[in-house]
Write a protein that binds this DNA or RNA. Structure first.
Length: 511
RNA sequence: GGUGCUAUCGUCUAGCGGUUAGGACAAAAGAUUCUCAAUCUUUAAACCGGGGUUCGAUUCCCCGUAGCACUACCA
């Protein structure tokens, strides 16, 4: 009875997609691809009060950017979309039907207790729980007459439908990552399945109904759902769907890098790194949250980084392409414990992918940075830009960091770094530079080799000291004691510009 | 408070009864060099505690401890 693998990512559109959610989506995707199954995207918007405009579009765009493909559901227009709608707020009639079914079977009941009343009750009774031990003291269809219930509803009184959990029963949940989890039904409360106020089900009901109707084979979700998994099992049972119930896998949580607790949006702001894939503009609050894409990350790096936060193969391999992940991933190698989010390692992954990347592409990505610094696109030949990024990329994690490493290629120094001057610009330096200038003026072959053959013997014969001369020269060209090998710099600058910078420096630095 | 899950270097992790407990990030030192980086080499760094089971436990079981999650008419 091999069942087709069908998994779903089912976020709620309450804001930007959290990085932990991204990882959940990724694991679902990897699992689906590996088994030749389907990956669905469903929007769980059953809480009308928390809906954030733009969130759905954000989710779709984020998954797209990361290369997490959707086969069915929201965001894709495909003939496979035969089990829709895939937005829960558009499935009201469906839920009505199943709520009715539970009500008729006596497995759920109508309750009129207001939120205020319940809050009051919780204050009065320590550890109050709406369950078999207390439901008879409440205002619900279990204790009221049929007529009374009818009348209440006629009057427009708001109500909820609660699941009638049978007491004292051990509920077994088989988790693909954690094994058998057993919970006694006594600790479960009579969960609200449907609220009349907005005519929508709660997560629990919608989730079970949709997973069943959409023929989901595996539910891969965050660990925060583990405590309610037994409730979900009970719901499948109540509907008579236990035979086709999906298998569960509860993923470990992503934790704060410092201290304790779940990684949250605030941590990003506090520690200065993104917790969202894309920059997000909250239309309600007007706040902007940074994203990995805008921070200069390659999607491959984010995927690789996230994949290894909670999953690891047997060996020492760390660099994984999406294709490799699809073939190597397995749920039984997902760790059970939460993973602290290590942003430094994330940067390292991007560094790796930057090194692997074709210089042509890196140069293309660097163009906007150059333009932002007033360097027009056509001033330098493409080949020169490629050469420069190829030279410098090994020292940075992001393309955006390239400018501060190689600005001197494009603009002559406007000033000279004081520290460098103090350490490297000595009394004899002006004289050395004068001599060097004279030699270079007469030099025609500007290749690194020729220059080296010209300058090194001269330094040696005069016993000036290589460090002293070369660093002074570097200060003239760069404005500071940094940058790649000096002949790389002269090579890019060319003879004219090199000489010009030395003359300028002599003017400015001779006292 | 209750229930559940979890527990190897600071961090992510490998290990699935016998290992000098491995790798990576971060850290430190050295090498290289005209500088700054990068790179390479090296170093430091861990089995939460206590009981069992076993010839032998990081590994299996139990208890404790700690961390986390859940405990809404949120997902």
């Amino acid at each position: 009875m091999e069942r087709k693998v069908r998994v779903r990512f089912a976020p709620s559109p309450t804001g930007a997609l959290h990085i932990g959610g991204v990882r959940t989506a990724l694991y679902n995707y990897l699992f689906a691809r590996q088994h030749g199954g389907d990956m669905l995207l469903r929007i769980e918007d059953t809480d009308s009060t928390r809906f954030v405009p733009g969130a759905e579009e954000y989710i779709i765009e984020a998954l797209q950017w990361l290369g997490i493909g959707i086969d069915e559901g929201i965001g894709v227009d495909t003939p496979l979309n035969t089990r829709g709608p895939y937005r829960q707020s558009e499935r009201r009639e469906i839920y009505h039907r199943y709520v009715r079914q539970l009500l008729d079977a006596g497995k759920a009941y109508i309750a009129f207790d207001t939120p205020e009343e319940l809050e009051q009750k919780r204050k009065q009774t320590p550890n109050f729980q709406y369950d078999a031990s207390t439901r008879n003291q409440m205002r619900n269809s279990l204790v009221m007459s049929k007529e009374e219930v009818e009348q209440y509803i006629q009057e427009g009184k708001q109500y909820v439908v609660r699941f009638k959990v049978e007491p004292d029963e051990d509920v077994h949940v088989h988790d693909l990552i954690r094994g058998e989890v057993v919970i006694n039904s006594n600790i479960l409360d009579d969960k609200v399945l449907y609220k009349s106020a907005d005519d929508l089900p709660t997560y629990h009901l919608a989730n079970i109904v949709d997973d069943h109707l959409m023929e989901i084979s595996h539910v891969i979700r965050g660990e925060e759902w583990l405590p309610s998994a037994p409730l979900h099992v009970l719901l499948y049972r109540a509907f008579g769907w236990e035979d086709s119930m999906p298998q569960f896998a509860h993923l470990p949580l992503l934790l704060k890098p410092d201290g304790n607790g779940k990684l949250s949006k605030r941590d990003g702001d506090r520690l200065g790194f993104p917790v969202f894939p894309l920059e997000f503009h909250d239309q309600k609050t007007g706040s902007v949250s940074s994203g990995y894409r805008e921070s200069g990350y390659y999607p491959e790096a984010v995927i690789n980084f996230l994949a290894l936060l909670g999953w690891h193969a047997t060996g020492d391999q760390e660099i994984y392409s999406m294709e490799q992940l699809i073939s190597d991933f397995s749920l039984d190698r997902v760790s059970k414990s939460g993973a602290k989010f290590d942003y430094e390692k994330g940067k390292w992954f991007n560094h790796q992918y930057l090194q692997l990347r074709d210089n042509k592409l890196v140069a293309e990505e660097f163009m906007p940075v150059l333009e932002a610094h007033g360097i027009a696109r056509d001033i330098y030949p493409q080949a020169t830009i490629e050469h420069i990024v190829g030279l410098m990329k090994e020292r940075v994690n992001f393309v955006s960091e390239l400018w501060e490493q190689c600005d001197f290629f494009f603009v002559a120094p406007t000033g000279y770094d004081e520290k460098s001057l103090k350490k490297r610009w000595k009394e004899d330096s002006p004289r050395h530079m004068q001599e060097l200038l004279a030699m270079l003026e007469a030099q025609d072959d500007w290749s690194a080799e020729a220059l080296d053959n010209l300058v090194m013997p001269w330094i040696a014969s005069k016993e000036y000291g290589v460090g002293l001369v070369m660093n002074a020269f570097r200060i003239c060209l760069v404005g500071a004691a940094r940058g790649p090998h000096i002949w790389e710099i002269t090579g890019v600058l060319g003879k004219e510009e090199t000489l010009r910078r030395v003359r300028t420096a002599l003017q400015r630095l001779s006292i």
